[in-house]
């Protein structure tokens, strides 16, 4: 029996309110007509209009999306391979070092990751720009991907692979026809996570970026260091709206595919 007690209900309601109220306030203020952010001057969409003309912000947003797309894809590939190596290959030489290198970046302060990356690029005298940010983000994100995919692989029912081999499928075909389709949801989730991590990152990108590769967080950060600005409220609102829609679509898609799976159960 699960009972919802008053204490539990309060904890949930207050917790959710705490998480969402600041975002809601931010969204409301982005429609404030007044230049002074704190003074309510009526509803207006002027900050959004102004944004459309701000090529620096739009350019930074596009740059962020490009970096996120490329690094998420690379990180998903490398992270999935790493997860396979960790879960499926048993003991191999250097496994401990490998596992440590997967887990360490998860808790490594971003400042240090960024600093060490930058020092590497300086040491091998690489010009910093788009690709250095991509490499840095890939390195950080692939570890998260590895952990997500590893979790799915670890509770993967091995007898399914054995059944495929028993029925005549060689190892590679077994992987492609049985294992891959079944871990695909985890891989997709990992890609989304990697994309979000890249889009979110300020510190590592600040260290590894170069001229012409300003990402959106770097841009926003340089704007808000000195205080709140109404245009930035608008940028943030758009960002939140995009993320909200993406998550909604993703959950609807999984609902739909799930529903297609269950609908047949009702048939006689």
């Amino acid at each position: 029996m699960r009972r919802v007690t008053w204490f539990n209900l309060c904890a949930i309601v207050l917790g959710i309110a705490f998480l969402y109220l600041p975002i809601v306030i931010l969204v409301i203020y982005s429609f404030n007509a007044s230049r002074l952010v704190a003074v309510w001057g009526g509803w207006s969409t002027q900050w959004y209009a102004q944004l459309a003309g701000d090529t620096a912000i739009v350019g930074a947003a596009l740059m962020s999306l490009r970096v996120a797309f490329v690094s998420a894809s690379l990180a998903t590939l490398l992270g999935t391979l790493a997860a396979l190596a960790l879960v499926r290959f048993g003991r191999f030489r250097g496994r401990l070092l490998f596992a440590s290198m997967i887990y360490a970046p998860l808790v490594m302060p971003e400042v240090i990751t960024g600093l060490s990356m930058l020092l590497l690029f300086v040491a091998i005298s690489v010009d910093r720009g788009f690709w250095t940010v991509v490499i840095a983000h890939t390195t950080m994100a692939m570890c998260f991907v590895a952990v997500v995919v590893q979790a799915r692989l670890a509770d993967f029912d091995m007898s399914l692979e054995e059944a495929a081999m028993d029925l005549g499928a060689p190892p590679l075909r077994t992987f492609l026809t049985v294992t891959l389709p079944l871990i695909l949801p985890a891989i997709v989730a990992a890609w989304m996570l990697a994309f979000a991590l890249s889009l979110d990152d300020l510190v590592i990108a600040s260290f590894t970026t170069g001229p012409g590769a300003t990402t959106l967080p770097i841009r926003i950060y340089s704007e808000i260091r000195l205080g709140v600005k109404p245009e930035i409220n608008a940028v943030c609102t758009i960002f939140i709206a995009v993320v909200g829609i993406a998550v909604l679509v993703a959950s609807l898609l999984t609902k739909l595919t799930g529903a297609r799976g269950t609908s047949a159960r009702i048939e006689p």
Partner: peptide, 12 residues
């Protein structure tokens, strides 16, 4: 949603 945005919301 962005980490930065959430901190920024509190600045507001």
């Amino acid at each position: 949603t962005s980490f930065l945005i959430r901190i920024y919301a509190w600045m507001n």
